[in-house]
């Protein structure tokens, strides 16, 4: 089978998987006890969006490190593509989190440590693009934004693990609890739907990421042809 056929098959598989995840989230998994009405179902979308926002941050770091080693403009394009998707998914995670907060606590924003963490992640992505916009020279832009991405990544463990432990949080317990141990106290059907959604959103991220990188590859090839 050619590469194109494999790619097309994977796209259809991803589409079908996500449709099944949406159906399972609304019709198969039960609503969790202790939450208002059906509000807990948002977990099947909010958690994978937050996961993808962090995953994009890691991909951005790896591509930035690679760029500083290889000086290949495609690695810079990979870093920017991951950051672009990270920005979109962290925005989505913020919006879905706010909707859940409004249903549960009657307020869209509570300055909860987890809300602050995702807001800072958004600010980091925004700052990353502000820096890219401010540097016209492509090579310099790539180096400086790679340096900033690596520097920003250093704060990540403090945002995710330290700050939420210092302040009391309204946020429901995360899958990895405060002790660092895995917490699996969900209904099995909820857990299966959540993991299926995590897989689906990860696939969606890599599909969009690949599209962006392929576009960048074409742009760089055209640029090289024009310069030759």
């Amino acid at each position: 089978m050619s590469d194109n056929r494999v790619r097309t098959a994977l796209h259809w598989l991803l589409g079908a998987w996500l449709v099944l995840v949406i159906a399972a989230a609304f019709f198969w998994a039960p609503a969790a006890a202790g939450f208002k009405g059906e509000s807990s179902r948002i977990v099947f979308f909010h958690v994978p969006q937050a996961w993808v926002a962090v995953l994009a941050f890691c991909v951005n770091l790896i591509a930035s490190l690679r760029y500083l080693r290889t000086r290949n403009p495609l690695d810079d394009a990979r870093a920017a593509a991951a950051a672009r998707l990270g920005l979109v998914f962290s925005l989505l995670a913020t919006v879905t989190g706010s909707i859940f907060a409004h249903v549960m606590w009657n307020s869209f924003w509570n300055w909860d440590p987890r809300e602050i963490s995702i807001a800072i992640l958004l600010l980091i992505y925004a700052a990353y693009f502000a820096l890219r916009e401010a540097v016209p020279d492509e090579e310099r832009r790539a180096s400086l934004s790679a340096a900033y991405a690596i520097l920003a990544f250093v704060t990540m463990p403090f945002l995710v693990f330290v700050v939420p432990r210092i302040y009391w949080s309204l946020h429901p317990d995360t899958i990895i609890g405060a002790t660092g141990k895995l917490k699996m106290q969900m209904d099995p059907r909820m857990l299966q739907t959540l993991f299926a959604s995590l897989v689906g959103f990860t696939g969606l991220f890599f599909w969009l990421y690949t599209l962006d990188v392929r576009l960048a590859r074409v742009r760089l090839a055209r640029q090289a042809r024009e310069e030759a």
């Binding site: 600010l123 700052a127 820096l131 704060t155 403090f158 330290v162 700050v163 302040y167």
Partner: peptide
């Protein structure tokens, strides 16, 4: 740019 780039980096630090 200094404020834009610095604030997200030092916010966890300021909290602590």
């Amino acid at each position: 740019l200094f404020a834009i780039l610095s604030v997200p980096l030092v916010l966890p630090l300021l909290v602590m």
